[in-house]
Write a protein that binds this DNA or RNA. Sequence first.
DNA 1: CGGTTGATGTAACGAAAATTACAACACCTG
DNA 2: CAGGTGTTGTAATTTTCGTTACATCAACCG
Lengths: 282, 282
Amino acid sequence: MAQTVVDQLRESLGNFPVTERRVAHRLLAEYPMAGLQSATDLARAVGVSTPTVLRMVARLGFESYVDFQRRLREELTAQLSSPLSKAQSPTAAGAGPSADAPRAFSAAVARNIEETFAHLSAHEVDQIVALLGDRRNRIHMVGGRFTDALARYLSVQLRIIRPGVSHLQDQEANWQDQLLDMDQRDVLLIFDIRRYQVSLQRLAEAAASQRVCVLLITDQWLSPIARVARHVLPARVVVPSVWDSNTALMALCESLLAAVTSNTWDYANKRMRALEKLRNTV
Amino acid sequence: MAQTVVDQLRESLGNFPVTERRVAHRLLAEYPMAGLQSATDLARAVGVSTPTVLRMVARLGFESYVDFQRRLREELTAQLSSPLSKAQSPTAAGAGPSADAPRAFSAAVARNIEETFAHLSAHEVDQIVALLGDRRNRIHMVGGRFTDALARYLSVQLRIIRPGVSHLQDQEANWQDQLLDMDQRDVLLIFDIRRYQVSLQRLAEAAASQRVCVLLITDQWLSPIARVARHVLPARVVVPSVWDSNTALMALCESLLAAVTSNTWDYANKRMRALEKLRNTV
DNA sequence: CGGTTGATGTAACGAAAATTACAACACCTG
DNA sequence: CAGGTGTTGTAATTTTCGTTACATCAACCG
């Protein structure tokens, strides 16, 4: 009984069918507002049918959707002791902007990271780690205008501990060629944050229709690619700047890498040593 | 838009008839959850008729009750950026390392970021921001095996708000060619963390001897490049993993970018708009 | 004291939402 | 490849809710 709705969601996420899981993701990413809309609105927002939302709620153990909403409200009342006081944004046009700005920035980033990890579904993480660690799979990575650097970053490191890792090169035209050879043994990890790129979406859809396993790392509002992705990890990106921050995405990448590494340590270790030797001789 | 629903309620409270005022009071007392129930439930809770609730909402200036609820939810999302403050549940100790590892990782990363910024020298930051923002300088970036992704990341974004930004391409052999044309009007931003790469060091030394302004972003133990660099920013990189974490470096980059952007906003803004237009026409 | 204004509740209406039943589909298993 | 299981959307049904029209009542004013 002590369990909160968020906990229930995270726990049961693994037992959910795909579309219901999408609903759960939205719920977690936009908690709790997403759950306070009508089930129909929520369904429309995620791109599934209303009954799917209802079934997910039922699977969580609620008698009805209204029951679920009531529970959500109860939790919130308990939680929001004094929401009025802090309502004003603390952007604080304080003393020296050059002195305070970095501090506010770092606080926001650190907070983003904590929230990102707090919202993570253990199931999704485990699945992704397993897929990335399985050497029978071929791994491909790609990102958007800014996030492609992350795809590059992760691919360079992952390549050290396992074979079969590629980073789709910049030229979007070339993606098609590489997509041609993919099938259900391929894993395509996509980074996409707002403003979402249509080219990435097209790629994801084409890949999904070829039974490629599409993984998505995105922002908390979920790229449309979430609809075709097998697993999704959302991260917080808002900071006091005109730009969004991709730092939480990077932390996520590193956490995935750490998990894959420790899960496959016997092999990874050998491989790293071999690589070391190679570097010294060449 | 600036006015929140609470403000409106408090202001108009005096002009309300008795029963409607009772509704308003309940709304304020149990804000905002009271307003997220159905109007009928709210009416019943206060002991008035449903239309009274509706009339009160109309008097506040809302088109309908659903409209009112929508607004309430919007405020909520804006306000509750961290609804999970208490969500740090016992986390079901059973799950083991797969559940706890990411949490420890995120804590370490967040801490790294905070410490990194806490130790920053405002002077160094200001100087670097000024150099990066000065359009008379040409900017070049490069990084090591892993950190080159960061060089790429920052250069892509900086290029949006100013001209003359280049990222030295992967082939180390080509670095020499690009170095050839550099002089005191060039700024070379280098990323280098342990294990420090000799090729980077050679590049830095060559550049410095040509009076190029070398900037360094490195780890807390300082790359040897620090000796020839004009300005240095160190970041924390240790996390519970066999890998080091470059997340704090990224946060640093984003903070620099934010500062440069806001310092040169007049120009940057124009340029971004122009770019936007260009993207739409092409 | 009659008439007017505004507040309030009752009841009826219509729209939207939740729920249920069913059929199509994909996926796995033998 | 057939049969079964489980998932999903469509469509029909029922319920709830928001909304509106109207009647009652109280207070105020000429």
